[in-house]
Amino acid sequence: MYAVVEINGKQYRAENGKNLLVDRLDAAPGESVVFEKVVLLAGENTAFGTPYVKGASVKATVNEEVKGDKVVVFKYMPKKHYRRTHGHRQQYTVLTVNEIVGA
């Protein structure tokens, strides 16, 4: 059984016991979080939400916060002596899915 859950405006596929890498959440490591915006429940009986499945939720535990790979942005204008280099590392939260509660 798996569920498609919406977290911070993005959709992720959640399965029991699996890890999810999501955009940074304001939660400390070891803290339990519950996501109630479940878009799809798949298993023996599939349930689609309009927009969300009523009574469904995903319970997870926060493992750690990590940084993604560095993305380098380079801007320039030819013949104008304009060059700018800028880097960015996105922060992520690693979650472990404990339970998928169905309707």
Results as ranks from 00 to 15, higher is better:
residue 2 Y to P: 12
residue 3 A to W: 00
residue 3 A to F: 03
residue 3 A to D: 10
residue 3 A to L: 03
residue 4 V to Y: 07
residue 6 E to D: 11
residue 6 E to K: 14
residue 7 I to W: 05
residue 8 N to K: 15
residue 8 N to S: 15
residue 9 G to H: 03
residue 10 K to Q: 14
residue 10 K to G: 04
residue 11 Q to V: 07
residue 12 Y to F: 13
residue 13 R to Q: 12
residue 14 A to W: 00
residue 15 E to R: 10
residue 15 E to Y: 07
residue 16 N to F: 01
residue 17 G to V: 06
residue 17 G to I: 06
residue 19 N to T: 12
residue 19 N to S: 13
residue 19 N to D: 14
residue 19 N to K: 15
residue 20 L to N: 05
residue 20 L to G: 03
residue 20 L to T: 09
residue 20 L to K: 01
residue 22 V to E: 12
residue 22 V to W: 09
residue 22 V to T: 10
residue 25 L to P: 06
residue 25 L to H: 06
residue 25 L to V: 10
residue 26 D to F: 12
residue 27 A to P: 07
residue 27 A to M: 05
residue 28 A to E: 15
residue 29 P to F: 05
residue 29 P to D: 03
residue 30 G to P: 02
residue 30 G to L: 07
residue 30 G to I: 08
residue 30 G to Q: 07
residue 30 G to A: 11
residue 30 G to N: 08
residue 31 E to D: 14
residue 32 S to N: 14
residue 33 V to D: 03
residue 33 V to R: 01
residue 33 V to F: 02
residue 33 V to A: 09
residue 33 V to Q: 04
residue 35 F to P: 04
residue 35 F to M: 06
residue 36 E to D: 15
residue 36 E to Q: 09
residue 37 K to I: 00
residue 37 K to V: 00
residue 37 K to A: 10
residue 38 V to M: 01
residue 39 V to S: 02
residue 39 V to E: 02
residue 40 L to M: 10
residue 41 L to H: 01
residue 42 A to P: 00
residue 42 A to L: 00
residue 42 A to K: 07
residue 44 E to F: 01
residue 44 E to A: 06
residue 45 N to H: 09
residue 45 N to A: 11
residue 46 T to P: 00
residue 46 T to S: 03
residue 47 A to M: 03
residue 47 A to T: 14
residue 47 A to Y: 05
residue 48 F to P: 01
residue 49 G to T: 08
residue 50 T to S: 11
residue 50 T to C: 01
residue 50 T to F: 02
residue 51 P to C: 08
residue 51 P to T: 08
residue 52 Y to I: 11
residue 52 Y to H: 11
residue 54 K to L: 05
residue 55 G to A: 03
residue 56 A to E: 04
residue 56 A to D: 02
residue 57 S to E: 07
residue 58 V to G: 06
residue 58 V to W: 00
residue 59 K to G: 01
residue 59 K to L: 02
residue 62 V to W: 06
residue 62 V to M: 10
residue 63 N to M: 12
residue 65 E to C: 10
residue 66 V to I: 15
residue 66 V to C: 06
residue 66 V to N: 03
residue 67 K to W: 08
residue 67 K to Y: 14
residue 68 G to Q: 07
residue 68 G to I: 06
residue 68 G to M: 05
residue 70 K to C: 03
residue 72 V to F: 09
residue 72 V to C: 04
residue 73 V to E: 08
residue 73 V to A: 12
residue 75 K to P: 03
residue 75 K to M: 08
residue 77 M to P: 00
residue 80 K to N: 08
residue 80 K to E: 13
residue 81 H to V: 09
residue 81 H to F: 10
residue 82 Y to M: 12
residue 83 R to D: 00
residue 83 R to V: 02
residue 84 R to P: 00
residue 86 H to L: 12
residue 86 H to T: 11
residue 86 H to I: 10
residue 87 G to A: 13
residue 89 R to H: 07
residue 89 R to V: 09
residue 90 Q to I: 09
residue 90 Q to A: 14
residue 91 Q to R: 14
residue 91 Q to P: 06
residue 91 Q to C: 06
residue 91 Q to G: 05
residue 91 Q to A: 14
residue 93 T to R: 04
residue 94 V to D: 03
residue 96 T to H: 02
residue 96 T to S: 13
residue 97 V to D: 08
residue 97 V to I: 15
residue 98 N to S: 13
residue 100 I to R: 02
residue 101 V to K: 12
residue 101 V to E: 05
residue 102 G to S: 06
residue 102 G to C: 02
residue 103 A to Y: 07
residue 103 A to N: 13
